[in-house]
Design a binder for these strands. Structure first.
Length: 586
RNA sequence: UGGGGAGUCGCCAAGCUGGUUAAGGCACAGGGUUUUGAUCCCUGCAUGCGAAGGUUCGAAUCCUUCCUCCCCAGCCA
């Protein structure tokens, strides 16, 4: 295949268009990279960067990754792979009060689970913003020296008041005209540890009358007497995201810094800062450029960090990895797969339009992937007994079931047939409704992989509930035998031998919220919680499932895809339903 | 009422340096195959591109005006 053909297979979106254009403009042909992050002097004698582009996935280690992050991960790492570039995993740990090592580990696991790493040739591009604190401090000093930053001693309230409003310009701080030396002294005081939190803050000196509020002298360094999970007590001043992020990108030689829409207003500051630092000799071209895309919204799902935390702490779910949670750890336990997420993100595309993706789009992507990857098994979820009256009490017979209907190479397995079987309650009706073609008195169906049977009767308990169904089998009709097709039936039901069945617990999951947009038309999104999002039942599995191991996945025929829970054991098998099969009936 | 964005089929989304009948996916509706009412296959699904004007031989693509929605006033990210 030629490059041209390969390119035709790639999706088209505005970010790829930008990259294509940048590459055609030879924007990075003189870009130097010495193999590790650093400023202008660090890369001064470096060779040309062999990575065509550099992107980054920059999570703050203050929570668990969710499905929305998966979109960003596939975007950033996918772009790097397609363009023969590198994607860095960078922890944006500039706020010590919120961040923790526990999240770092979980994020690393999640990214690897989705199939990515941060290697590029011999580089290991795993970085921490906190590694750049020294450079950031120097950058701040340089800004003070060039007259582009000052230490403001107003209180937080005063700063807020003087910022102005959306329609009215702000007022200059009384400290805005301090000399460079005064600012240097004050900034040193901030760093010295002798100033309490909030006493003063370093601000960029731009324009208090800017129509863009982000340009009204944004705060770039604050005092925070807090222990950082990586730098300990080395610092008591920490850079703000606004200041830190562009620098992180620049030091790592990022070409395309892709973030979500809400940062659009910050792009002017991003460019302002980097240009200043370039003029001050700390950075060189090509400078990274920020591009924004629409974050993922999924119907019936909440993705905001605050709400997710609330769901866990208020115990609406069992934890971060509850299979109903949209976290990656939850999705994994639910049985959602990396390949499914890849298909999903490919399908939804990338754009700048705010949008809500139908939850069914995600489910369908999972079904499509699971359909080919999962072997089939039989499970009766709501058992009633079926007795084959003309089948001997002690007889046991092998039935052969293919592991996958579209892939013979996966072989067959044996399922034992006996006189008494478990079948689904839903596969029998005393009085069939229209178009129902399963079991009812007088009707014939095939016991999948076994014989055709004729329904002869049934028992009910005092409540009128069916307890046992009776039938007679047609001896010449066994699946695979010459006479198998001699009797044509429409219905085909699954079953499990009572004598051989394995009991298990199954968790049936439904959407966590009962409305498309939780919270949109109610007091709180919590009012929209679906109280029956989890149903736990006891079921009968085919005997071949006795040795199932945690995380094994199967399709239970006619039901859906199921995964063996991490807490499952041979004595206590637990299966989680990932997603049902499509069902045109009922 | 300031600034920044976005509006193409029920949900996404190509196309947008103007040029045959406006890609594709999901959903939906029919039909075929089928020992999963699954899968798979076929067919249908916007004379229309937020609205109205205008430029042009020709506009979703260019211009003008208007409408709707989202984001921004943390020493959060």
């Amino acid at each position: 295949m030629s490059d041209h053909e390969i390119k035709d297979d790639l999706p088209s979106n505005f970010i790829r268009s930008i990259i294509d254009r940048n590459l055609n403009e030879n924007l990075y042909q003189n870009k130097k990279w010495i193999g590790s992050p650093g400023g202008a002097s660090h890369h001064a004698n470096a060779p040309l960067d062999s990575a065509k582009i550099r992107t980054r996935f920059p999570p703050e280690p203050n929570g668990y990754l969710h499905i929305g992050h998966a979109k960003s991960i596939f975007l950033n790492f996918g772009l790097a792979r397609d363009y023969k570039g590198a994607c860095h995993l960078r922890f944006d740990d500039t706020n010590p009060e919120k961040e923790d090592e526990e999240y770092v580990r979980s994020i690393i696991d999640n990214v690897q689970w989705l199939g990515f790493d941060w290697k590029f040739k011999d580089e290991d591009n795993l970085y921490y913003a906190s590694s750049y604190f020294s450079f950031m401090h120097e950058a701040a000093l340089s800004l003070i020296q060039s007259g582009d930053a000052y230490v403001d001693q107003q209180t937080a309230d005063e700063i807020r008041e003087n910022r102005g409003t959306l329609t009215a310009a702000g007022k200059n701080s009384p400290y805005r005209q301090q000399t460079v030396d005064e600012n240097l002294t004050l900034f040193a005081a901030m760093k010295s540890g002798k100033q309490p939190d909030g006493a003063m803050v370093l601000r960029a000196k731009i324009d208090m009358a800017s129509p863009n509020i982000n340009m009204r002298d944004p705060a770039i360094y604050r005092i925070k007497h807090a222990e950082h999970h990586r730098t300990g007590n080395d610092w008591c001043i920490y850079p703000m995201y606004t200041f830190a992020h562009p620098i992180e990108d620049a030091l790592e030689g990022i070409t395309h810094s892709i973030c979500t829409l809400e940062f659009e207003d910050q792009r002017p500051f991003y460019d302002w800062l980097l240009t200043k630092l370039k003029n001050n000799g700390l950075l060189t071209d090509p400078l990274p450029k920020q591009h924004e895309f629409a974050r993922l919204n999924l119907t019936y799902v909440v993705l905001s960090k605050r709400r997710l935390i609330e769901l866990v702490t208020n115990q609406h779910v069992s934890g971060w990895d509850d299979p109903r949670m949209p976290t990656l750890v939850g999705a994994k336990r639910r049985g959602y797969t990396p390949a499914g997420f890849k298909l999903f993100t490919d399908r939804i595309g990338v754009s700048k339009a705010d949008s809500w993706i139908d939850y069914v789009t995600l489910e369908d992507a999972m079904r499509e992937v699971l359909n080919t990857s999962c072997d089939r098994r039989v499970a009766v979820l709501d058992p009633i007994k079926l007795v084959i009256s003309n089948y001997a009490e002690d007889q046991v017979e092998d039935c052969f079931a293919p592991n996958h209907p579209q892939d013979e190479s996966r072989g067959k397995r044996v399922i034992k047939l006996t006189r008494e079987l478990w079948i689904e309650r839903q596969d029998f009706m005393i009085e069939p409704e229209k178009k129902y073609f399963r079991l009812y008195p007088g009707n014939q169906v095939r016991l999948r992989y076994g014989y055709v049977v004729n329904c002869t009767g049934y028992d009910v308990d005092k409540k009128g509930q069916v307890t046992t169904v009776y039938c007679e089998y047609l001896p010449d009709t066994k699946s695979g035998s010459a006479g198998a097709d001699s009797v044509k039936v429409k219905g085909n039901i699954h079953w499990v031998s009572c004598k051989h069945a394995v009991e298990a617990k199954v968790n049936l999951y439904d959407r966590l919220f009962k409305v498309e947009h939780p919270g949109a038309n109610s007091e709180s999104y919590l009012d929209d919680i679906n109280e029956s999002s989890l149903t736990s039942i006891t079921v009968q599995l085919e005997e071949n499932l006795v040795n199932i191991k945690p995380m094994d996945q199967f399709q239970f025929e006619r039901h859906g895809y199921f995964i063996c829970d991490p807490d499952s054991s041979s004595k206590n098998i637990i299966m989680n339903r990932t997603v049902t099969l499509r069902d045109n009936w009922k």
